[in-house]
Design a protein around this nucleic acid. Structure first.
Lengths: 156, 156
DNA sequence: CCATATATTACGATTCCCATATTATATGAC
DNA sequence: GTCATATAATATGGGAATCGTAATATATGG
């Protein structure tokens, strides 16, 4: 029974690969942002908004771990660039709903096209069952990241 | 033969999970940095240095997609905080070697401990063969990210 | 030895981030 | 209904970060 040791080794490799992946995706994000005159955090916000749908500045600030006042500046920048709109909620006129505008987002998509195709090629080498296994692993990892980040963000 | 369609669906899920994972890892990084009075990019630099070993400012600037002058400010900050040292290369006295100091890096490790354990738990649910499959996928994805980012960074 | 190239850093202008204060609106007690 | 309090977002100002350009130090080739 040496698969125990194999598992341990593979787990170590996975963690290292995950660290590398984080860096590479962050760098890719940075390069994409550079082409669009956007800061890294701007694209993060757009990504969260795209995934989550319209949300308020406070909620978004919590999601990305920033001070609300900081987000005001970011939203000003995104609004000026035509990336988002800010609409007051009629039900609670203190509240604002941030919505992503579709037009400019095709530019982001185009810049990510290279990575998108590379991922298609990688995935083509796996069976459907394997892909589902990987998908599950990635979702669980993302959730683990969410939980860990949440705990750290709690105090302060 | 409907596994074709299953594959297509799983690939889409993988891409979405990867986007989510990127955001969560970026946020985790941000929270860790907050505890240590470090900027996001500072931890990125430390990570690259830890992985790659000692390197010059120019090389590191290329790795993280920053202007060399920007890196000077980052290195000043890291040096002031006792995270790194800068040593002149005796062979080429224009060149500088950046080295990570081990002492403070245990603090980073401690802050990542929660995520580390969560990953152990996740990995415990897979066989050795499955873990190796996942490890390979992650490495290939990281490489794809590196290639894509490199292409975007080329022009400009 | 000199001209050119390279590695890093200094400097200055612009922009960003965030703590605090401010404005507008909602909610609950009475 | 009125007032006190709480909440959402933003304005403001100070300190810090980023980056283009210039400066400094060193290397290399003729």
């Amino acid at each position: 029974m040496e698969s125990k040791q194999t598992s341990r080794r593979a787990t170590t490799v996975i963690k290292a690969a995950l660290r590398d992946l984080r860096i590479q995706l962050a760098l890719l994000n940075h390069q994409v942002g550079g082409k669009l005159a956007l800061k890294d955090i701007d694209l993060d916000c757009l990504d969260v908004l795209a995934k989550h749908g319209p949300m308020t500045p406070s909620a978004l600030a919590r999601q990305v771990g920033l001070h609300p006042a900081t987000l005001t500046g970011i939203l000003d920048r995104l609004e000026r660039g035509g990336w988002i709109t800010r609409d007051r909620d009629p039900a609670d006129r203190r509240s604002v709903s941030i919505r992503v505008l579709p037009d400019r987002n095709v530019e982001v998509y185009r810049l990510y096209r290279g990575m998108n195709r590379a991922m298609d090629e990688i995935c083509a080498d796996y069976t459907a069952a394997e892909l589902e296994l990987i998908a599950g692993f990635l979702q669980r990892s993302a959730d683990a990241g969410r939980t860990s980040a949440g705990k750290l963000g709690q105090d302060s």
